[in-house]
Simulated assay, not measured.
Amino acid sequence: MQTILVTGSNGLTGQKITENVIASGKFNLIATSKGKNRFPVQNGYQYEEMDILDKARITALVEKYRPDAIIHTAAMTNVDTAENNKQEADRLNVEAVKLLMDICNTYHIQLVHLSTDFIFDGEDGPYDEQAAANPLSYYGKTKLQAEELLKASGVKWAILRTILVYGIVKDMSRSNIVLWAKGALEKGSPLNVVNDQWRMPTLAEDLAEACLLAVEKKAQGIYNVSGKDMMSIAELVYRVADFWKLDKSQVQEVSSASLGQQASRPRRTGFILDKTIRELGYQPHSFEQGLELLNKQLG
């Protein structure tokens, strides 16, 4: 049985990987994150506190558990925060990857790394794995830099690029677009929603499954991992409203420019998923199926 070490296991994708491993029993899992374990089930895997910038600690855990693969989900993902804190973004999104690369090289470990659609400028999405990158934001630049480092590293690597991940876990420290839209619609708050950005939102369960498929199949190379449905952010909010039968009248469509956000966002991203479906056996949910799953989890 393969042993996997996961970074950022307290995050949304990290918790979904833990959930999947417990249910499938296919892997030995070492879940790692900063601080205490936030996953409600404590058995069926090991939890270790770990800072992704602490090389001595990571090395000690690798020595102890000898993982076959590391799935690296920890990162600074807030696009405006990265724009305002470039040094911290460099540390978390680039330095941490260098550190893991070195360790994976030394111990012959596969590194499955999560990247983003924000490495693209959004001028001609949806993109395949070979498309030329041109990030508009500092966040996108750090994620692209990490990809380039990995490609040149000599490590057994798989890069999984994803888009706008949504889902729910018991202890949500951060919201995501679906829960934000649902919460605001339920409160009857006015919502300003952009109608000039298009995405293919990704269910967290699908991303977790893709990470584990990449380990199982010892995948190497770049893989696109997202949902199948392309929609504008405004359409996404309308679809959330329709699903939960909420009032759409408080939704105000606005342009991206009117929001005055720190970082530029790509206009239309989206992914061509053929390679991931063919090589990994990836089968994403439709957006409505994803909402159905969230609804069950919300009870």
Rank of each mutant, 00 (worst) to 15 (best):
L5N: 06
L5F: 04
L5C: 07
S9F: 01
S9E: 00
L12A: 04
T13A: 09
K16F: 08
I17D: 00
T18C: 06
E19R: 15
I22C: 11
A23F: 00
S24G: 11
A31R: 03
K34I: 10
K36C: 06
K36N: 12
N37E: 12
P40V: 11
V41R: 14
V41I: 14
Q42R: 15
Y47P: 08
E48G: 05
M50A: 15
D51H: 15
I52T: 13
D54C: 12
R57M: 14
R57Y: 11
T59K: 14
T59N: 14
A60P: 10
A60S: 15
L61E: 10
V62T: 15
K64P: 05
Y65C: 04
P67Q: 11
D68P: 02
I70H: 05
A75C: 13
M76C: 05
N78R: 13
D80M: 07
E83Y: 13
N84M: 14
N84Y: 06
N85S: 12
K86A: 07
Q87D: 14
Q87Y: 11
E88H: 13
R91K: 14
R91Y: 09
N93W: 04
A96C: 11
A96H: 03
A96Q: 09
K98I: 00
I103M: 08
Y107V: 03
Y107W: 13
L111P: 01
V112N: 01
H113Q: 15
D117T: 09
D117S: 13
F118W: 12
F120W: 07
F120R: 03
G122N: 05
D124S: 15
Y127V: 02
D128L: 04
A132R: 09
N134R: 15
N134S: 15
P135W: 04
S137G: 05
K141C: 07
L144F: 04
L149M: 10
L150W: 02
G154D: 06
V155P: 02
V155D: 01
V155F: 06
K156Q: 10
W157P: 00
L160F: 07
V165L: 02
V165T: 14
S173D: 04
S175C: 09
A184N: 12
L185Q: 08
E186G: 07
G188P: 09
G188Y: 07
N192F: 13
W198K: 15
R199Y: 14
P201V: 13
P201D: 07
P201H: 12
P201N: 02
P201A: 10
T202Q: 08
T202C: 15
T202W: 01
D206G: 06
E216V: 02
A219V: 02
Q220D: 08
Q220L: 09
Q220W: 04
I222Y: 01
N224L: 10
V225E: 00
S226P: 05
K228G: 00
K228Q: 03
D229Y: 03
M231D: 11
S232G: 05
A234P: 02
R239W: 03
D242W: 05
F243D: 06
F243Q: 10
W244S: 09
L246R: 05
D247Y: 11
D247E: 14
S249I: 07
V251I: 15
V251D: 01
S255M: 09
S256P: 00
S256W: 08
S258W: 12
S258Q: 11
Q261N: 12
P266L: 10
G270N: 06
G270I: 03
G270F: 01
D274G: 07
H285V: 09
H285T: 03
F287Y: 11
L291I: 07
L294N: 02
L294R: 01
